[in-house]
Amino acid sequence: MPSFTAKTSTISAALVVLIVLQGFCAVFFLIDIAHDFMEYRQPDFSLLHSSLELTANLALLAGAAVEGIFLAGLLRRQAHAERALSAASGALHDLMEQYFEDWGLTVSEADVAAFTIKGYSIAEVAQMRGSAEATVKAHLNAIYRKAGVTGRSQLASLLIEDLMNGALSAKVGPREDAARHPVQKSGTDG
């Protein structure tokens, strides 16, 4: 099972609590507002007031949905990163996720691709994802097709190539970069 940093766990749990609370309150008040609208003939019914309430609660619900999408993204990135602990992993990881997005990989394909780039075998990936090897092979074929490569080594070399071209140094903060390499120009336009 993946082991998470305490920080990710806390942030995720806090987000879930927030989503649940916002979601429930929005549903609760929307039911309430629906009752108000059904009694629009009553003298104390104000269309403006009720419409504003409706808007506020729909916005609350939308906020909960956005938090859900954000949480899914956070967990996905964390899941892909959990075994990458080298110094470059942060920037390399960003680059990797960017490629997955550009290629239009599905959630499962991106997960398989992350494992594959880190050098895990098909059997290992299947075991870590709780799926059959045939499924992983199908994912791999889709990944290679979408990335326009012929196999595992070409997939990895795409990232290496970008590393060489300085895509990584572009992602390192300029101050940190300058402090470490005072004379070297960073190839930010690569």
């Binding site: 998470f4 766990s9 995720s12 899941a79 959630v107 997960d111 994802r129 709780g130 799926s131």
Partner: peptide, 19 residues
């Protein structure tokens, strides 16, 4: 367990299927 629940959510997010 918060940690186990987050692990399950992350399985969902990454498309993993540990039953």
């Amino acid at each position: 367990s918060v940690e186990a629940a987050v692990a399950q959510l992350s399985d969902m997010a990454a498309g993993r299927n540990h039953p």
